[in-house]
């Protein structure tokens, strides 16, 4: 497929600036050009001050989360020409504060995860006996979540309730409940059982739609509700655990 010139309308903001602006750049794209590659080309050829986050280029690290034409995506796996638009609007993720251009602060995101005091990356029970190469103490098993923040960006409740725990943290709490590994599953439920926890979700399912790693946060939030409902009914009728 021949190259095609695509206009990129990119969100720009530097600290101290009154308001964000959009700069437009033209980038020749072929069928393999991803949004991340195009943004790197802009930074290399047009404006070295453009700030963006990225690392692995293959949807593993979760650092290049963006809003592309209004939808939450990992920039590294979205092919520009497949978007089918002559102009591609690139913005930072929503519901997280902008640091510079396309980079948002992940402090609120990780802060909620830390609040649970349940590490998201946990020691594997299955791999402890496995041989490890010299220099590596032990393997760890990674949960599906990339911690990219796309679910938080897509959630309509995150934009209106600052105290909402959010889909990623609630999904993490459900993982603790279904696979406690020494943690207290009831404490995980307790942590989500309030007005800004799992009950705050309004079932828009945007988090599940946005998740690039099939974590299905909305389903996990509904599972939390189901367990909490069972627990409350059990306590009410005194046949609970």
């Amino acid at each position: 497929m021949p190259e095609k010139d695509i206009q990129f309308k990119v969100f720009r903001y530097k600290q101290g600036q009154d308001a964000p602006v959009y700069d437009t750049f033209t980038v020749p794209c072929d069928e393999d050009t991803t949004v991340l590659v195009a943004l790197q080309a802009i930074r290399r050829d047009d404006d070295p001050s453009l700030t963006l986050r990225h690392s692995c280029h293959h949807a593993s690290c979760g650092t290049c989360g963006l809003r592309i034409n209004g939808q939450e995506e990992l920039g590294c796996v979205v092919r520009v020409l497949e978007l089918g638009t002559d102009t591609v609007v690139v913005e930072p993720m929503s519901n997280l504060p902008v640091i510079s251009d396309l980079v948002v602060s992940m402090v609120p995101f990780y802060g909620v995860l830390n609040e649970v005091e349940r590490p998201y990356i946990r020691q594997s029970e299955f791999m402890q006996q496995a041989d490890t190469p010299k220099g590596i103490e032990m393997y760890t098993r990674y949960e599906n979540c990339l911690e990219c923040g796309l679910c938080v960006s897509a959630c309509p409740i995150m934009g209106s309730d600052e105290a909402y725990q959010g889909p990623a943290a609630l999904a993490a709490a459900w993982r603790v409940f279904e696979e406690p590994r020494g943690n207290d599953p009831e404490a995980a439920l307790d942590w989500t059982d309030h007005a800004h926890g799992c009950w705050r979700c309004h079932v828009a399912y945007e988090c599940t739609e946005a998740c690039p790693s099939d974590v299905q946060p909305a389903e996990k939030i509904m599972s939390l509700r189901r367990e909490l409902t069972k627990r409350k009914l059990g306590r009410l009728f005194s046949f609970g655990r």
Binding site: P97, N114, S160
Partner: peptide, 18 residues
């Protein structure tokens, strides 16, 4: 408790989020 940070570039507009 995790602190929410002000977003100077994009002030909160809850209605817009809806």
């Amino acid at each position: 408790k995790a602190k929410r940070l002000d977003d100077k570039a994009r002030p909160k507009r809850p209605l817009q989020a809806w």
